[in-house]
């Protein structure tokens, strides 16, 4: 119990100290860019608890969710099949390499051109940007399936489809999962960029609008919300992964 408290104190004292320091130092700040933290906090409460949530947070998250749910599973399905066939890889890998080398954010202007500045262009941008990191990870995961497991699947006469989805994909899940995590981070970035480049609502639009109209305190609150969201998404992803891939950790813990 005491040890737990000690650990908690060690891991959190610096955060508290820095926040207090920020609060104290900025208290009478006249600096244009660094307004008093107390003012930011007050404005944060006014902006985000919970007035603008429906207007700005929900649409952003909805776009991210829709884009991710379309892009990532498609990438797993396409990647799994691509990973199976060496010929298909020879045909497509330079093309895939080219497309994945285009930074996800550079796709945003294209889709704005194609679909206008509505939610569609944002969702498509997110879906496409999310697609490639997961695709690459899945191809690699399926390609590097353990030879012994493949012998086992063959000896039990699993069909190609069965051995793909029952053996190769689950055994490559840790690698696929790290692709999915990168995809989520990329999707989050594209979500913000797509809103910063011409949108009327959403967190990115709010923050950039505040900046352009020199409402520094509002801008700060936008930055803080985005930072916290980015962190929370990562934490949630890792929690889900930890549960889903318990076997992987367990196995590694014993063999290493």
């Amino acid at each position: 119990m005491l040890a737990l408290l000690r650990r908690f104190l060690i891991s959190s004292w610096l955060v508290v100290a820095l926040l207090l320091l920020w609060w104290k130092v900025s208290a009478n700040s006249e600096n244009y860019f660094w307004p008093p933290l107390s003012q930011i906090a007050t404005q944060f409460k006014a902006n985000w608890l919970f007035t603008n949530v429906v207007e700005d947070v929900i649409p952003s998250l909805k776009n991210l969710a829709i884009g991710y749910i379309i892009g990532a599973p498609c990438a797993v399905v396409v990647g799994a099949h691509l990973g199976l066939s060496e010929i298909a890889q020879k045909i497509f890998s330079p093309l895939v390499n080219f497309f994945r080398s285009i930074p996800g954010v550079a796709l945003v202007p294209i889709f704005i051109m194609l679909f206008g500045i509505g939610d569609e262009s944002r969702r498509v941008s997110i879906a496409v940007a999310v697609f490639f990191p997961t695709l690459i990870a899945t191809v690699e995961a399926v390609r590097s399936s353990d030879a012994v497991l493949m012998d086992v699947s063959r000896s039990f006469r699993f069909s190609a489809f069965q051995s793909l989805w029952r053996v190769r994909v689950p055994s490559g899940a840790p690698m696929i999962s790290s692709g999915l995590q990168v995809s989520l981070q990329v999707g989050f970035i594209v979500m913000i960029v797509s809103e910063m480049l011409g949108a009327f609502r959403g967190l990115g639009a709010f923050t950039v609008e505040a900046q352009q109209s020199f409402m520094i305190i509002d801008m700060w609150t936008g930055i803080i919300v985005l930072g916290i969201l980015g962190y929370i998404f990562n934490v949630i992803f890792e929690l889900v992964e930890k549960r889903a891939l318990r076997w992987y950790r367990g196995q590694k813990g014993l063999t290493s």
Binding site: V148, V152, S155, V167, P170, W247, Y248, G250, T255
Partner: peptide
Amino acid sequence: DLAIVLQEYTRSLMPW
């Protein structure tokens, strides 16, 4: 009608 048991038991079972 044939079944196989391989040497590498750590790799021949599905860890998940």
